[in-house]
Design a binder for these strands. Sequence first.
DNA 1: ACTCAAGATTGATCTTTATCAATGCATGCC
DNA 2: GGCATGCATTGATAAAGATCAATCTTGAGT
Lengths: 232, 232
Amino acid sequence: MSQTRLSDCLHCQMRGESIFAGLDPVELCTLGMEVQDIDCAAGDVLYRAGDQARYAYTLREGAVKLVKTLSNGQEVILRLLHHGDLFGFEGMHEMEHRHDAISLAPGKLCRLDLIELRRLSERLPKIRDAIFQRWQDALRDSEERVVELGAKKAEARLATFLLHWAQRYPQLRILPFPLTRQDLAAFLGLSVEHVSRLMAEFKRQELLRETRNQLEILGTQRLQEIAEAKPD
Amino acid sequence: MSQTRLSDCLHCQMRGESIFAGLDPVELCTLGMEVQDIDCAAGDVLYRAGDQARYAYTLREGAVKLVKTLSNGQEVILRLLHHGDLFGFEGMHEMEHRHDAISLAPGKLCRLDLIELRRLSERLPKIRDAIFQRWQDALRDSEERVVELGAKKAEARLATFLLHWAQRYPQLRILPFPLTRQDLAAFLGLSVEHVSRLMAEFKRQELLRETRNQLEILGTQRLQEIAEAKPD
DNA sequence: ACTCAAGATTGATCTTTATCAATGCATGCC
DNA sequence: GGCATGCATTGATAAAGATCAATCTTGAGT
């Protein structure tokens, strides 16, 4: 993590999507909360499962994975975070982080002290509600994952995933795509080889195009059909 | 759903584990909230996905499954609820229920009006926090499911599940077990036949015994090993 | 007690996915 | 430019799990 400086929330592009949305500038200035502004590189570890939970983060740029590592070394990616996402906030109610948080690409984050955040959310209902909302979203997401993993086959899971990824960049035709095959496999519950074959097959069918860390979805329609597991 | 009457929260066995734990009797009496006391039979539908969310429920006796039904008719069980569990509370923040809630066994529930519950949780931080806590638990559970489905094989998933089930009845050697093979399959992301074979195999190895709607775990130790996917 | 229906089991086979091994491809470093 | 190194691809084979079809069991209803 290269740089740390104080963040200027007042002029942050991201504020509207953050937990501080809904506060007016005066409220924002009187928060009495220091927000650290952090740069990170691909591969940076923001925290590890079991670490004492000191901070939550808002991702402003880049992508982060939340990973659970099993005793046998196998990894599962529990969430993939994009610009605007808040994470690490399980630490508001538990002593330790539950996952590893690892950056996938050069990015920028805001680091929020959890003690201050707790205090703040007791004082300001708007902030409390905003965090609660994030919690609900995380649960809905996670349930969605259970459905995907429990009921769909590899092809459909990958298609769903790609479409969801694309939805996080509505304005872009060419998407940033910093995931390795290993990451994809850990997210989809598949082997690296299987993911590789599926991606190759999707490319052969011209449903997508891939270049160094970038992805273009060509066949949204068809991918939707595959995601719904409709045969051919 | 056979009976509906007013519930007497004050003398409820369950109160200590409910969202009303921590309120003293005076507070409890001045809640101004009517709690309906409901009996249900196996198979009763408490609500369906898409239904307008009017009530949340606390399960006092019995077992309930929360089910997501896919467009192709396939079902996935998202949560299995036991005595003390609160469910349906996603309706506090969304208009409609996200799942089907279906009773698996004769049981008793408290039905809480969501509008009153919302009002109450704004007024009483203890209740708000208790509900928030349930939300966190649900997320942790769901993440645990993602790990199971994403990383473990059938045998291990079943073993984990059985151990978790047993943990919900710490004082019992012979557990209630109202799940069909179909239910197990829908929870574990497997086919009915596969589940049947695995259960047969576990019985052959004398890890468990099963009688009509009842289950006895004989080999906790060994099941733990299987759950961790340690070979033989 | 007899029958029926629903769920459970079992076996055979097919499909999907993992695993193992070899090779290819790019990128960064010297 | 040349060469390690890590990631990706591809193929061959094995294992896990699904599907299909046939029975078996059991409990509810008569």
